[in-house]
Design a protein around this nucleic acid. Structure first.
Lengths: 251, 251
DNA sequence: GAATCTGTTTTACATTGTGGGACAGGGATG
DNA sequence: CATCCCTGTCCCACAATGTAAAACAGATTC
């Protein structure tokens, strides 16, 4: 990579935006301290972002502007699988009373494109746009299982296989073996591998040979066990994935 | 404003992001031509954005990354009115079979925070995050009616009162008169003022003395007329707004 | 197989982002 | 009521850095 990339000023603006997102609203001084940058520098960036209407100045304090909603919607709409699967995800959540979600891969991580919580489902602090490790969730493994070995290697190399819970798969060999099983079965399981107490089942959504994403059904281990975990949920997510695939071809 | 704001490099990155959003995926050359910038400059910006994982490189072509989903969700979550009103908006759409939406004000424009389409509703090409003129819609006028005169002046001065359809209110006096009516009635109307063939009714959502946003109900003039337009819809949006206000205080 | 696209790399110069420091105003403190 | 110490904002000089022309390599086209 040449000398003048990344562009320092742009990198800083991105860092400022990210940090800004961690606050509700925040002043220049606090933001500058958090980022370990001079106040005047942060100020110049904020004023630039404000003039572009990407940031809002609320009486001296700053916050993210809703222009990012627009960019986010466009980023999401690029993925046809969103429109194709959204309805199925909502239906799964409603039918089971648990949590259902849609994940895609990007930059070697999983990104939630959509989530739906059924009535009485546990509340998990995750949200649209959240990024997770692929190896640590049924959703992620379902996607990995559909990628060529070389891409899986690249992702593992880039992101590693960090431990998330006691059950997380952290060995490359073990992961490969599991991905092979998943590819055959068409369903992936997650037994408290990402979050303690949470089990989930996921199925990949294909467009021909290519995995576009995956759908899941997740709930607390106290409610998800036995046949419900091993039979009912797999059948339901597989159905939902098939329905989404059908929607994809007719649109 | 001092000489070194806006920061040119940041401004360019913002322009690149915006233009990027207008394409599905796009190459460096096309993007550079669209923006009238040298290819190498655009390239440097794209590579910087890519290294920050805000942009995705799909085999030479680029597109917006889903990190903006995350920023967008955070920008939206800042507005408590979103959580408070979302359910009501969905309910309105479901009950009437028409379109319902939630709008807030930002930088003198209206921003859709949420939208819901009932079964059989007309499909309008608008989306979460879309920005509209406040004077040209029931939603916007409902908000304007709740702002102090000085702020309305500021907004009109900044954004003007451009003509959107033959019915758009484009005179400052006329707008003032209508805002006064709206403030009294608690409901705003839009009779094909923003889009031909579309009528809508909106009510403001207050937190004490302050307007936080507005909810609307909209449909084609062929279905929205007479008592439905003048009685039923106003009653429904007012109810929804009240319910949202209640949700705000108990959360 | 030549021509012409593409994304990418290189390079050198002038522009411009940077950051220390100063300023005005508001709140808190005494 | 005066002092102090915050805050966001502004100024400015200099070195760093973003810029853009031109060259490059690989596809695609003709």
């Amino acid at each position: 990579m040449s000398e003048n990339v990344p562009i320092k000023a742009v990198d800083r603006t991105l860092a400022i935006l990210q940090t800004l997102g961690e606050y509700d609203t925040v002043g220049v001084t606090a933001l500058a301290e958090d980022l370990d940058l001079p106040r005047s520098t942060v100020f110049n960036h904020l004023k630039t972002l404000e003039s572009g209407e990407y940031v809002v100045n609320d009486g001296g304090e700053y916050r993210l502007g809703s222009r990012f909603l627009e960019l986010g919607a466009k980023a999401r709409d690029f993925h046809d699988v969103y429109e194709a699967a959204r309805g199925e995800v909502s239906r799964l959540a409603e039918e089971t009373g648990e949590i259902s979600a849609l994940l895609i891969e990007e930059h070697g991580l999983g990104v939630f494109l959509y989530r739906s919580e059924g009535e009485g489902s546990v509340h998990i602090d995750s949200f649209t746009g959240q990024r997770i490790y692929l190896h640590g969730a049924a959703l992620g493994k379902a996607i990995l299982a559909g990628l060529p070995e070389s891409r899986v290697d690249g992702i593992v190399q880039r992101r590693g296989l960090p431990t998330l819970t006691d059950n997380t798969v952290t060995e490359r060999d073990e992961l490969s073996a599991e991905l092979a099983e998943i590819a055959e079965a068409g369903v992936a399981f997650d037994d408290e591998e990402r979050l303690d107490g949470l089990r989930s089942v996921a199925a990949p959504i294909y467009d021909g040979e290519e995995v576009l994403g995956s759908v899941s059904l997740a709930g607390p281990s106290s409610r998800v066990y036995g046949d419900r975990f091993r039979e009912e949920f797999p059948a339901k997510v597989a159905d939902a994935a098939s329905a989404a695939e059908l929607n994809l071809t007719y649109s």
